[in-house]
């Protein structure tokens, strides 16, 4: 009995102590690195990200009513791909008339602009951010795609107006 006790004590001494549950310094390093590398790889400064976020709000507001301040736009890494994660708390799906009205208003605005500004053909929608890298324009193009799906998803969830519903749209966009 005594011997068994002693044996266990000796084993306990040699046994490796379990690492604690708190985040290790290595995990902190990995996480910080992932974030900083994504910024490095895309050339997207925080200002540009904010601008992109605002533009997304404008764009999506035509189709759904959402919590504008809660729209989140983040870069995340998924394997060797960088993904643009968009999280939109939908308050209410707009009905057909509202969407139609918003689109018509925009079309009218566009045709007005086109007729008035003959000298420059650059459409505002296509080159909103004046940036220097290709990555940016790619990102933006990709980020516009989820639109349709989004309004569909919102339609299905009609009347379900809690902000907890956050349809996550994911756009992969190969970097490098």
């Amino acid at each position: 009995m005594l011997l068994a006790n002693l044996y266990n004590k000796v084993l306990g001494f040699f046994r490796q102590t379990d690492t604690e549950q708190t985040e290790s310094s290595k995990d902190t390093a990995c996480n910080r690195l992932r974030v900083v590398l994504m910024q490095d790889r895309t050339n997207l400064t925080p200002e540009l990200m904010e601008r992109m976020r605002r533009e997304m709000v404008d764009l999506l507001s035509k189709y759904v009513e959402m919590d504008k301040d809660a729209l989140e736009l983040n870069l995340e890494q998924d394997g060797d791909q960088v993904a643009l994660m968009l999280s939109i708390p939908v308050i209410r799906a707009k009905d057909e008339d509202e969407i139609k009205a918003a689109l018509e208003a925009e079309d009218a605005k566009k045709s007005q602009e086109e007729s008035s500004a003959e000298d420059e053909d650059g459409d505002v929608d296509n080159e909103e951010t004046s940036d220097s890298s290709e990555d940016n324009s790619e990102n933006e193009k990709a980020s516009e795609e989820p639109n349709e799906n989004d309004s569909k998803a919102a339609d299905e969830e009609k009347e379900d107006s809690t902000t907890e519903e956050q349809p996550k749209e994911k756009d992969t966009n190969k970097e490098k």
């Binding site: 690492t19 290790s24 310094s25 290595k26 995990d27 390093a29 990995c30 590398l37 394997g79 060797d80």
Partner: peptide, 18 residues
């Protein structure tokens, strides 16, 4: 250091840099 989780492991670095 890797054993005690105080240094990024080989796999960590390879994964991050792919």
């Amino acid at each position: 250091l890797i054993k005690t989780n105080d240094m990024m492991s080989v796999d960590d670095v390879v994964e991050i840099l792919s």
